[in-house]
Design a protein around this nucleic acid. Structure first.
Lengths: 150, 150
DNA sequence: CCAAAATAGTTTATACATATACTATAAGGT
DNA sequence: ACCTTATAGTATATGTATAAACTATTTTGG
């Protein structure tokens, strides 16, 4: 049996835990009436209503093509609406509908509580340590090409 | 500005870092001639050649429907092949082709080196601490329904 | 043995995500 | 002004992923 670099073990464990957490989070969101990607859109629009699709795609670290389809589906469900930008005929500005705002306000605090609980296995001290280690890793990694010098 | 639970901050940072790492890893794999999901299949078959699609889906934590499509695409590219299980007419056993084995042997060590480097920002001591914290989190999270009591 | 339940694989519908090419508009430089 | 280039959004093709329905076998209980 070949021995594995301990760094690779750490990497795999990191992926395993984050995958597990994301699955739980997405499952919880789905029970509350939408998908994980749609929740991210509602959360962004709650604090940045009126941004363009382009700006949204940068905040979400996804392509504009992805946002285009995502917003299309959410518009069909009457969660958001597009309005033409009066200052730029190319652009759409994005707004929550009443239904979208109500859903966001219901789900966001619940979701925060849910993900916070996933950290309860660690003490305050350990959470601080974890954040410090993650910050170090984050800073050492190159920036995502989808967010050019954010 | 509302204050956020520090646990939520830790959660978000964890997702951010793992997303960044996975993107880099997938990008690197793509340069070497396949997708991330396909790499995972080759890696599993390298050590467990001859397993069924069902067993593979459990190892990869994905649905059997997903594996069915994935193996279909990889069979088209002549990376793997299906053979009927002589002991169970329902099942397929999976094998690497020569091309698949050669690709796996070329890419796997390279990929290990690549992901190991992503941990270099942490000292040996810090890597140990990180693994310990991740292990604690992992044990506190419920098991994935896709892997019933693995 | 045989009917019922479980299992392996496939298929279909839906959602997400990327890359690429395309349209329309905007901004800049000469 | 005009032409080039950049930008915002859309459309298409491909890959990944799930859930749910379906087929074909196998297992199991009576």
């Amino acid at each position: 049996m070949r021995l594995r670099d301990t760094r690779v073990v750490a990497w795999l464990q990191m992926m395993r835990v984050s995958d597990k957490m994301e699955r739980l989070s997405n499952e919880h969101i789905r029970c509350l009436g939408m998908t994980g990607a749609q929740f991210d859109v509602l959360a962004q629009l709650s604090t940045h209503e009126g941004i363009s699709q382009q700006a949204l795609s940068e905040k979400l670290f996804v392509t504009k093509g992805n946002v285009c389809g995502l917003i299309g589906r959410m518009e069909q469900r009457d969660l958001v609406k597009r309005r033409p930008d009066p200052n730029d005929k190319r652009a759409n500005l994005l707004f929550l509908t009443e239904k979208g705002r109500a859903l966001a306000e219901r789900v966001m605090p619940e979701q925060e509580r849910f993900v916070a609980e996933q950290m309860n296995a660690l003490s305050e001290q350990e959470q601080t340590t974890l954040r410090s280690l993650l910050r170090q890793l984050d800073r050492s990694l190159p920036d995502n090409p989808l967010t050019p010098t954010l």
